[in-house]
């Protein structure tokens, strides 16, 4: 039964009203994304856009999206945006923010991008306490180039460049980015969340909101690491991929708050 029919039939007694409870955020562009079906890049985009809407930041936001599956992210957000070279988004964001201190600048980086080729840029951006927000998509793989090993690949995980599973004796161990960056005084906020189910998605959104609030309050560098899926290169259905993320990534990458400066804690209590 449609809502209208429902209203009509019970008009006399209740007059229920239909309320909009969820709509596509305005900070997303109308373009369809090129992401594979069920890829959580899309969820992360949506959450960022929802937060930008809620905080009223669409007119102030500048996105910097480097190479990776999300290189075209500037087509998917309805905010000013730049594409960056592989790993260099935090440096570019630094340049943007320093000359536009009133803008809200955020990068959207994959794990190959941030943890491998761009590790120096992200660390020094945090060292400087740069007032930018980093959304870090950890899907334990190089998605765009077809599924090679990333610094975040789980031990034993099969990728096209670790065909027998990641061998830690040869290639070392996964990088714990949220923990690593939490050790720097310039970091105001460093947390890890997951996108594998709705409960965790809601928590992820709250973290993204806090990260942007940290920037608005000029508290320093903020980063949200999001455990994400790459169904295509993991070779799974989207639903199986989320299960895999829950069962294999969370034990390797414990969810939690690794650094939350006091100013943000107070804010949370007051809410």
């Amino acid at each position: 039964m449609t809502a209208l029919a429902f209203q009509r039939s019970e008009k006399k007694i209740l007059k229920p009203i239909e309320k909009l409870v969820y709509e596509r955020p305005h900070s997303l562009d109308e373009n369809h994304t090129h992401y594979c079906p069920g890829c959580t890049h899309g969820i992360a985009h949506r959450l960022i856009a929802e937060v930008l809407d809620e905080l009223g930041l669409q007119e102030k936001a500048i996105l910097v999206a480097p190479v990776g599956c999300a290189v075209l992210a500037y087509n998917y957000f309805d905010v000013d945006g730049a594409e960056a070279a592989h790993g260099r988004a935090p440096a570019m964001a630094t340049g943007l923010k320093r000359v536009n201190p009133d803008s809200v600048v955020f990068t959207y980086q994959g794990d190959g991008d941030l943890a491998s080729i761009g590790i120096a840029e992200v660390i020094h951006t945090a060292v400087r306490g740069e007032n930018i927000t980093v959304i870090f998509i950890n899907n334990a793989i190089y998605g765009m180039t077809g599924g090679q090993m990333a610094p975040t690949t789980i031990p034993g995980q099969v990728t096209t460049s670790s065909p027998n599973g990641r061998d830690t004796a040869q290639t070392g161990y996964p990088m714990q980015i949220a923990e690593l960056l939490s050790g720097l005084p310039g970091t105001a906020y460093s947390v890890r969340r997951s996108l594998h189910d709705t409960r965790h998605i809601i928590q992820a959104k709250k973290a993204i909101r806090t990260a942007f609030e940290a920037q608005l309050q000029e508290l320093g560098f903020s980063i949200v690491e999001l455990l994400s899926s790459c169904p295509t290169n993991w070779g799974m259905t989207p639903i199986k991929a989320l299960d895999w993320a829950r069962d294999n990534m969370i034990p390797q990458y414990p969810l939690g708050d690794y650094k939350v400066v006091d100013e943000l804690k107070k804010k949370r209590r007051n809410r």
């Binding site: 910097v64 730049a82 960056a84 260099r88 440096a91 570019m92 943007l96 000359v99």
Partner: peptide, 13 residues
């Protein structure tokens, strides 16, 4: 590497 990308960012602005 970082310097040139900071320049790039500021130039974009």
């Amino acid at each position: 590497v970082a310097a040139v990308n900071m320049v790039y960012g500021a130039a974009c602005a």
